[in-house]
């Protein structure tokens, strides 16, 4: 058994658990819930082992580095962090329907990582610039932030769905009836953004320190850096709009979704559409 096969199993587990959470949302049969979380945890454990194994394999190939160094590996880590975040969230808030909005994101990330054209899944040796502990700190902090923002966007979608059902006066037993109440989703979205903002800040800072160690410039306005600061500005505005101007509900939900688009662009768009220092993810 090698790490790619294990990643395959984890991907299938996330597909199954996405289906189960969706079924839970649609049929509101509480019995499905425990299966959904069990499958999710199973997938998570398999993925954790796979990450460890891939790390080990890199040493066997004489390259030896943490599995956090190219587009493929970062997607896998993003999906892993998102699931971890979700599992903790489910146990904390004791609501399972949220899974229908979050687990699919992790599944899509894994599926894209393994199926996308031109995505190298090889364990590659590191060029000298990438041989730094700051790389590890940078990728981990950024991607914890990204996964929190993914969850926040999922919560935003959930909020808007529920809100529109209420506005249309749909009977409470339709699709959205099982969703937590609006105020609670709103609160959770905010806390998740707060958490993500802290990690994004740490991610930008660790990236700056690393750049300064490697090139002597902590900030060079290359497109990836610029987009990360744009993303940071968007979330900073969201936080300020909330606690100083009292924005709540739909506006925050939309901002959570817009913010995640910025994250998405920072992550993918910059690699594919723009050029710059951070080309490491583009192979």
């Amino acid at each position: 058994m090698n790490s790619s096969q294990l990643f395959g199993i984890a991907t299938l587990a996330y597909l199954l658990s996405s289906a189960l959470y969706t079924a839970l949302l649609i049929f509101k049969n509480k019995k499905i819930g425990p299966y959904a979380i069990t499958v999710t945890i199973f997938g998570f454990l398999v993925q954790t082992v796979a990450l460890g194994l891939r790390w080990y394999e890199s040493y066997q190939q004489g390259i030896g580095h943490a599995p956090l160094t190219n587009m493929y590996e970062s997607l896998v880590f993003f999906s892993w962090a998102t699931i971890l975040f979700y599992i903790i969230l489910e146990f904390k808030v004791k609501n399972r329907v949220i899974g229908a909005f979050v687990v699919p994101i992790a599944f899509v990330a894994m599926a894209y990582a393994s199926l996308a054209k031109g995505m190298s899944q090889q364990i590659e040796p590191l060029n000298p610039a990438l041989q730094s502990n700051w790389l590890i700190a940078h990728v981990i902090t950024c991607f914890i932030g990204y996964s929190a923002f993914a969850v926040a966007a999922g919560l935003g979608v959930m909020y808007l769905l529920k809100k529109s059902a209420i506005n249309k006066n749909l009977p409470p037993d339709t699709l959205t009836g099982s969703l937590p109440d609006l105020q609670f989703i709103d609160h959770l979205t905010h806390r998740t953004i707060v958490f993500g903002f802290l990690w994004l800040s740490a991610g930008i800072i660790s990236g700056a320190v690393w750049a300064n160690e490697a090139w002597g410039t902590y900030w060079s306005w290359d497109p990836k850096e610029t987009w990360s600061i744009i993303t940071w500005f968007i979330y900073a505005s969201t936080l300020h709009a909330r606690f100083t101007r009292g924005w709540r509900g739909s506006r925050i939900a939309w901002l959570a979704i817009i913010g995640f688009f910025a994250v998405f662009f920072t992550y993918f768009g910059v690699n594919y559409l723009l050029s710059g220092l951070h080309s490491y993810g583009s192979q």
Binding site: W221, W227, R245, L274
Partner: peptide, 24 residues
């Protein structure tokens, strides 16, 4: 005013995009 702060954050965010599209 925080309104100005929001406006400035928005303006900084949007104008920053220019430099990522036009090579510098």
């Amino acid at each position: 005013s925080v309104k100005l702060a929001l406006f400035l954050l928005f303006t900084l965010a949007t104008t920053s995009i220019i430099g990522t599209i036009v090579p510098q």
